[in-house]
Amino acid sequence: MANTTTEAAGAATEAAGHAAEAAGHAAKSAGMPQLDFATFPNQIFWLAVALVIIYLILSRVALPRIGGIIADRQGKITNDIAAAEELKAKAVEAEKVYQQALVDARGEAQRIVAEAQAEIQKDLDAATAKADAEISARTAESTRRIEEIRAGAARNVVEVATETAGAIVAALGGKADAKSVASAVAAKLKG
């Protein structure tokens, strides 16, 4: 009994504990507070209230909202993917155009190069032909002059030989007419 007085002087929590014990008096007879049937109507009433409130909050506000958010996100993702695909197609198209332009430019460049080469070839051919003509003209001229010189030289040889032969015949005391000397020299030169 000394205990009870010290406890009474103790904390308010102790007192609350006592009250709880008193409240659980019926429970104790049953063994478990869960089987204290006196509390059942109360629990069931408040459970029903709680469930109805939760159901209304969830079905009226929370679930449509969350469902909407998820649907919105799904829609946005789908749209973004479609947009990305479109952009990708555009990029492919742009690259195709770029490649085509590149091919065109390359062809154009080759055409210009070929044209320039043809032009140069033409000029070159003309120049070559002109040079060839000049060379052949000069060759012909040179040939003619060589022939002339050769003919001059042969004539001179006949003249010198005739004169020399006449002089030799005269020196030897012979008398020779110019005509026979010349024929003799010609015969000798031919032989």
Binding site: A16, A22, A23, S29, D36
Partner: peptide, 30 residues
């Protein structure tokens, strides 16, 4: 004891809820 269901705003005075003896005025109302 942690499972005891008790009123929030009052204490059940000892002896006011003994269904076996027909005393229920202190018992938990629904």
């Amino acid at each position: 004891d942690q499972f005891i269901v008790k009123p929030l705003f009052r204490d059940v005075a000892p002896g006011t809820c003994v269904p076996a003896d027909g005393i229920t005025e202190g018992c938990l109302k629904w």
